[in-house]
Simulated scan of single mutants.
Amino acid sequence: MRHTAYVFDAYGTLFDVHAAVRRQAERIGPDAQRLSELWRAKQLEYSWIRTMMGAYQDFWSLTEQALDFALASLKIGDASLRADLLSAYWTLDCYPEVPHVLKGLKASGARLAILSNGSPAMLAAAVKSAALDGVIDEVFSVDPVRRFKTDPAVYDLVTMGWRLYPNAVSFQSSNRWDVAGATKFGFRTVWINRSGQPDEYRDFEPALILPSLEGLLTA
């Protein structure tokens, strides 16, 4: 069933979070993949811990802290590499199908939004770099509520901002934990399982599982 409101997670769903490290892979050497995975894992861990503690810092601060931990763990002390990796995070590559799918949904009359942990400045830069500013109607950052996903207040940004009931929203994320949180909130959810991960959170199942966003045009 086509929806009139499609909301997308940003990092990992629209934008490839591993693109920054991939651009510097030759400089990093054999630890490149491990660095990227650890950077991402700590970035998310810090968001969950700070939400539980009620000690909010914006996502850019957590991104910097997570990279510092990853570099220290792998004993990489190149300051210029750190600067280049952080710079690249502002212009992450979007996945190949993203522009085509979003334009197709937009042409069908749907409203499109991003709902992300990212700070407003991070998201504005990523959207502009990927040339998606012409198709995205609104970008919702967690900054106003000072909490991160999966806090219900984050998902409520969409329903309050667009004055919609949760079940009127189709929410897409590549993060299974994000899908679980959005499902519990009441969104119709689609898990974009790009890497073929096993399912979890089976008590909060998505309405649909797809290997990429492409399937949204026929679902």
Rank of each mutant, 00 (worst) to 15 (best):
residue 1 M to H: 07
residue 1 M to P: 11
residue 1 M to Y: 07
residue 4 T to Q: 12
residue 4 T to I: 02
residue 6 Y to T: 04
residue 9 D to I: 03
residue 19 A to E: 15
residue 22 R to I: 04
residue 23 R to S: 14
residue 24 Q to A: 10
residue 24 Q to H: 15
residue 25 A to H: 03
residue 26 E to S: 13
residue 27 R to A: 03
residue 28 I to D: 00
residue 31 D to A: 05
residue 31 D to Y: 03
residue 34 R to V: 05
residue 36 S to H: 06
residue 39 W to K: 03
residue 40 R to I: 09
residue 40 R to K: 13
residue 42 K to P: 00
residue 45 E to N: 01
residue 47 S to C: 15
residue 47 S to W: 03
residue 48 W to E: 08
residue 48 W to H: 10
residue 49 I to Q: 14
residue 50 R to Y: 00
residue 50 R to H: 03
residue 52 M to E: 11
residue 53 M to G: 01
residue 53 M to L: 15
residue 57 Q to S: 15
residue 58 D to E: 08
residue 58 D to C: 09
residue 61 S to V: 15
residue 62 L to K: 02
residue 65 Q to V: 04
residue 68 D to Q: 04
residue 68 D to C: 02
residue 74 L to S: 04
residue 74 L to V: 04
residue 75 K to V: 02
residue 77 G to R: 10
residue 78 D to Y: 10
residue 79 A to M: 09
residue 79 A to Y: 08
residue 79 A to D: 14
residue 82 R to C: 06
residue 89 Y to N: 08
residue 90 W to Y: 15
residue 91 T to E: 05
residue 92 L to I: 08
residue 92 L to T: 00
residue 93 D to N: 15
residue 95 Y to L: 05
residue 97 E to F: 10
residue 98 V to L: 12
residue 99 P to C: 06
residue 103 K to M: 12
residue 109 G to L: 02
residue 112 L to Q: 01
residue 112 L to H: 00
residue 116 S to A: 15
residue 116 S to M: 09
residue 117 N to W: 13
residue 117 N to E: 08
residue 118 G to D: 05
residue 120 P to C: 13
residue 121 A to E: 09
residue 122 M to D: 03
residue 124 A to R: 15
residue 125 A to V: 11
residue 127 V to C: 06
residue 128 K to D: 02
residue 129 S to W: 01
residue 129 S to P: 02
residue 130 A to L: 13
residue 131 A to M: 10
residue 134 G to S: 12
residue 140 F to M: 12
residue 141 S to Q: 07
residue 143 D to E: 09
residue 145 V to P: 02
residue 148 F to K: 12
residue 148 F to A: 12
residue 148 F to Q: 06
residue 153 A to W: 05
residue 153 A to I: 06
residue 154 V to Y: 00
residue 155 Y to F: 15
residue 155 Y to E: 12
residue 161 G to Y: 06
residue 161 G to R: 05
residue 164 L to S: 10
residue 171 F to P: 07
residue 174 S to E: 03
residue 176 R to E: 03
residue 177 W to K: 13
residue 178 D to S: 06
residue 178 D to C: 11
residue 179 V to C: 13
residue 179 V to L: 12
residue 182 A to M: 04
residue 183 T to W: 01
residue 183 T to R: 08
residue 187 F to I: 09
residue 187 F to A: 13
residue 190 V to Q: 07
residue 192 I to L: 11
residue 193 N to D: 13
residue 193 N to L: 11
residue 200 E to A: 15
residue 202 R to P: 01
residue 204 F to T: 14
residue 206 P to K: 09
residue 208 L to T: 06
residue 210 L to H: 08
residue 211 P to T: 11
residue 212 S to P: 09
residue 214 E to W: 05
residue 218 T to C: 10
residue 218 T to F: 03
